[in-house]
Amino acid sequence: MGHVSSATTAAPVRNAFREQQRREAHERYLLCARTVFERLGYHGATVADIVEAANGSRATFYAHFRDKADIAACLFERALPAGAAMYHRVAEFPELTREHMRAWLGEQVLGFWAQYRVEVEAVNHAMGADPAVAARHYHWIAEAVRLAEWPGTGERVGLTRATLLVLQLERLCYHWLVRGVEHDRELMLDILADVWFRELTLLREGAPR
């Protein structure tokens, strides 16, 4: 006699399938949003452009995202694990030296910003349009610093100093690598290495309050 599936076993299968469909739709809209933002820019792009690129519907879009600023924020969130891993590598240096700092900045930090240029530009415009996205962005930075596990960031003063250091770097990289403000690359790396080496040394030694 054949096996008859009960309603209780069929329901989880259906729910798992729907969840997979939901995740796939969410990812499709994000990928299409990136393509549209890259082609038209954040301000030139519309929700209709993203929906058309995804071959979807407005109803499906709004089931996943609040608006254009929200999808830009969610797009940037996809880069956060890579950013957190990048900052965590500093804690793995065998020795904190200016040379290690400069190499990390030149190879990994600048590479990260080049790779995620579209996401960074979109979320920066979204922050200007939506204070909630700006608040999310600050939370992301603080969380990335916390996950980096740098010595000295276990207390509030150290965490605040480290967060400000990352915010300063992000502002520079945004204007330099995303908006195209010209800088001498070698000179800028020298200055950044000096600043980061000094600040991380203070964190490790315990900065005065």
Rank of each mutant, 00 (worst) to 15 (best):
L110E: 06
T201Q: 12
E170I: 06
H137Y: 15
G56Y: 12
W113S: 11
F37N: 05
L203T: 03
P81V: 03
A63K: 07
A91Y: 14
T8S: 14
R204P: 00
E27D: 09
M188E: 02
L159V: 00
C74Y: 14
E205D: 06
E205S: 11
R117T: 06
A85N: 15
G158V: 12
I71T: 02
N15V: 06
Y62F: 15
A63R: 12
A85T: 13
R34F: 06
A25Y: 11
A114H: 11
W150N: 05
A114C: 04
Y138L: 11
A85W: 15
G180P: 05
A25F: 14
H183K: 13
G44Q: 08
G154M: 01
F65T: 02
A69H: 08
E170Q: 08
S6C: 11
A10Q: 08
N124E: 11
Q20N: 02
G44C: 11
E121Q: 13
E149G: 08
H139V: 04
A11S: 11
V157D: 04
D194G: 07
A85Q: 13
A16Y: 15
G128A: 13
P81R: 09
A10S: 05
V36N: 07
W140S: 05
V36D: 05
R198L: 01
D184P: 10
V133I: 12
V90K: 07
C173N: 00
I141E: 03
A82V: 01
M1H: 12
R146P: 02
L159D: 00
V123E: 08
M101T: 08
A85H: 13
D190G: 11
V145M: 05
E121R: 07
I191C: 04
L105G: 02
E38Y: 04
T35S: 13
R14S: 10
A144C: 03
A142Q: 04
T35N: 11
H26K: 11
A207P: 05
M86V: 01
Y174I: 04
A63D: 01
R18Y: 13
G111I: 04
N124Y: 15
A132K: 13
W196D: 01
L147I: 01
E143T: 09
F112R: 05
E52D: 00
S6E: 08
V109K: 07
A79C: 08
A144H: 06
A63M: 05
W150D: 02
Q21A: 06
E182T: 15
A79L: 09
A59C: 03
A162S: 00
G83V: 09
A82P: 07
P12V: 07
P208S: 00
E121T: 01
V195I: 15
R66C: 03
E38M: 01
H183C: 11
G41P: 12
I71M: 07
Y116I: 04
H175F: 14
F112E: 04
L159C: 00
T8K: 14
A82E: 03
G206C: 08
G111L: 03
C32L: 05
R23H: 15
E186R: 14
E38A: 01
L167C: 05
W104P: 10
H43Y: 02
Q21Y: 14
H3W: 15
R66M: 09
T8E: 10
V90P: 02
R58M: 08
A72H: 12
F17Q: 10
G206Q: 09
A114I: 04
D184F: 15
G2C: 10
Q108N: 09
T60I: 08
F17Y: 13
A129Y: 13
